[in-house]
Design a protein around this nucleic acid. Structure first.
Ligand SMILES: [Mn+2]
Ligand SMILES: [Mn+2]
Ligand SMILES: [Zn+2]
Ligand SMILES: [Zn+2]
Lengths: 150, 150
DNA sequence: TAAACAATTGCAACAAAATTGCGTTTATAT
DNA sequence: ATATAAACGCAATTTTGTTGCAATTGTTTA
């Protein structure tokens, strides 16, 4: 609904050589509007019949390949999607921040300022490291509140 | 096929109050025989029609609940299973080791002796931590060899 | 050793998640 | 305005996982 944001999203599509379509802008809008990563089922539920299931899958895949969003698999194996903050591109993702997966609501939060340590991993011979990811589990802010109230 | 191992597996079932059945022993045998974690599709493929799909799911679920095996979701969202080494039980899992997910063959390796650092995570207010897991991605030993040869 | 009984399994049906092929529509460049 | 590749919608299929129920089986006990 926000015009500034709409222009921003349109620019994002153009920058990545993607056509400006209603479906794509809709997905970008949904992702913008949620504090946590959006799960595939959630997105699908929100858009309803406005966007065909297959189209949605293709949009998410394209966005991921272009480095616009990144996919986070939660503890149940469900795909969640969030905007990339860093300089991710078609060639490589650089989303090396903490992901927090709530055990209660299952939401996945991207946490940028939990400063993660740098250290040497002691891998077995022959194993070469490309990326190390950190996944925290616990209760998110909302769900912690709910527990207190009981 | 190994008699020692068979007895060991039977004892494991008895210890956990589970009946000794062919299907369960078969699953334990498969898990024993693979250096990496076994994916659900792999196991299903290996057992073929010997074990009904539903039975397999139930066996894996039971084993996980009893603390016999733990589930690792890989980067594609596929469930992988491996024996628990530590003192996991019906009540809690303690599989806090590194998981290595190969980008080429997708296999998941449990790596016990990659000493992971202890440190304080800086979580946003209201977020409470239960567990932190480390997932490395890269090429496993086998797949590294394959690349060299080309 | 035979009966008893709960645990385990197999089958059928269903649901959700994801993919493929193909014909049609549409955004954009010329 | 037109051409064209990109994007989309629809149908069909595959994979993954679940539920209910009846039949079977492992173990306990008499
Ligand atoms: Mn993230
Ligand atoms: Mn493990
Ligand atoms: Zn939560
Ligand atoms: Zn590999």
């Amino acid at each position: 609904m926000n015009t500034d944001q709409l222009n921003q999203h349109e620019a994002l599509l153009v920058k990545n050589g993607l056509k400006k379509t209603g479906a794509r802008l809709r997905v970008l809008d949904i992702l913008s509007g949620s504090e946590a990563a959006a799960s595939q089922p959630d997105i699908e539920h929100v858009v309803g019949k406005d966007i065909d299931r297959v189209t949605l899958y293709r949009i998410l895949k394209t966005f991921e390949e272009k480095g616009i969003i990144h996919r986070i698999i939660d503890n149940q194996g469900t795909a969640n999607y969030a905007f990339c903050h860093n300089n991710c591109s078609e060639h490589a993702h650089h989303d090396e921040h903490l992901h927090f997966n709530c055990v209660n609501c299952q939401k996945v939060y991207c946490i940028d300022n939990a400063h993660l340590p740098h250290f040497k991993l002691n891998l077995p011979p022959g194993f070469s490291l490309q990326q190390l990811s950190f996944v925290a589990t616990g209760r998110c802010e909302n769900c912690s509140k709910l527990t207190e109230q009981k």
